[in-house]
Every structure is written in C-alpha cells, then in structure tokens.
Computed example of a mutant assay.
Amino acid sequence: MKQLTAKEVETLLNEGKTLNIIDVREVDEVAAGKIPGAVNIPLGLIEFRMHELDKSKEYVMVCRSGGRSGSASQFLEGQGFKVINMVGGMLAWEGDVE
C-alpha cells in the first residue's frame, strides 16, 4: 500500500497539485474540519459508494489517525483502485481545514 505523510500531502496541495482526497471519517468528525476539497465517504459506506470513484484516478485516503483510511485503502486496492493512505491522519494534519 502506498503511503504519504500529512506533511507530504500538504506540500503537494501547496504546490498546486490536484489531489482526489477521500475522508473516511464519520459525518460528525468531518463537521469539525476536513482538508479543503476532500470528499466524505464514511468507511462503512465505501463498499456501497465505490461506484462514484474512477479507477483511472488516484485517491488519497484520510481518517483521524490513519487506521480506517488504511482499511479503506486495502479494500479499494483489492477492487482495482489506485489509492494512497495518508499516515497519521487528521491528527497529524497541520494545513488548512474547511
């Protein structure tokens, strides 16, 4: 499984890179703040909403600490998606939130 640190993701965004970020936290967690532009698909719904994702794109998976996003990454990889897990999750995120 590919991984990036929160700092690496922040640097890529600050350089103007377009990242497809999926936040797999629950709705109430995301309400407290998420990475700007991230799409919220709670981990429990990934299996039912993966049809919304494009297998030709690469996705950065995010959660609170990196555990749930790791699970989501493994599942989606098994379904043929290109994914990167953001290790450390939002606990390690120092960038802007919306």
Rank of each mutant, 00 (worst) to 15 (best):
V24R: 00
R25I: 02
R25K: 08
R25F: 14
R25D: 08
E26K: 06
V27Q: 13
V27C: 06
V27D: 15
E29S: 07
E29R: 03
E29D: 13
V30D: 02
V30N: 02
A31Q: 12
A31V: 07
A32L: 12
A32Y: 04
A32P: 01
A32S: 10
G33L: 04
G33Y: 02
K34H: 10
K34Q: 13
I35T: 01
P36S: 14
G37Y: 15
A38D: 05
A38F: 02
V39C: 00
V39P: 00
V39L: 05
V39N: 00
V39E: 04
V39Q: 05
N40I: 08
N40T: 04
P42T: 02
L43F: 13
L43T: 03
L43G: 05
L43W: 11
L43K: 06
L45N: 10
I46W: 11
I46A: 13
I46G: 07
E47L: 08
F48D: 14
F48T: 15
F48W: 09
R49G: 05
R49F: 13
M50W: 08
M50V: 05
M50P: 01
H51P: 12
H51D: 14
H51V: 10
E52Y: 07
E52D: 12
L53N: 08
L53C: 09
L53H: 07
D54Y: 09
K55F: 06
S56M: 03
S56E: 14
S56G: 10
S56V: 15
K57R: 11
K57Q: 14
E58I: 14
V60L: 02
V60R: 00
V60Y: 04
V62A: 09
V62K: 06
V62T: 04
C63V: 01
C63S: 07
C63E: 04
R64L: 10
R64Y: 04
R64F: 03
S65A: 10
G66N: 08
G66E: 09
G67Y: 02
G67S: 12
R68N: 07
R68T: 15
R68E: 08
S69R: 06
S69G: 05
G70A: 14
G70D: 03
S71A: 07
S73T: 15
S73Q: 11
Q74C: 09
L76I: 01
G78K: 12
G78M: 14
Q79A: 12
Q79P: 01
Q79K: 15
Q79Y: 06
Q79N: 10
Q79V: 08
G80I: 01
G80P: 01
G80W: 15
G80L: 14
F81R: 03
F81I: 15
K82G: 12
K82Q: 14
K82W: 02
V83N: 00
I84E: 00
I84F: 00
N85K: 06
N85M: 09
M86I: 01
M86T: 00
V87E: 06
V87P: 00
G88R: 03
M90S: 13
M90L: 14
M90K: 06
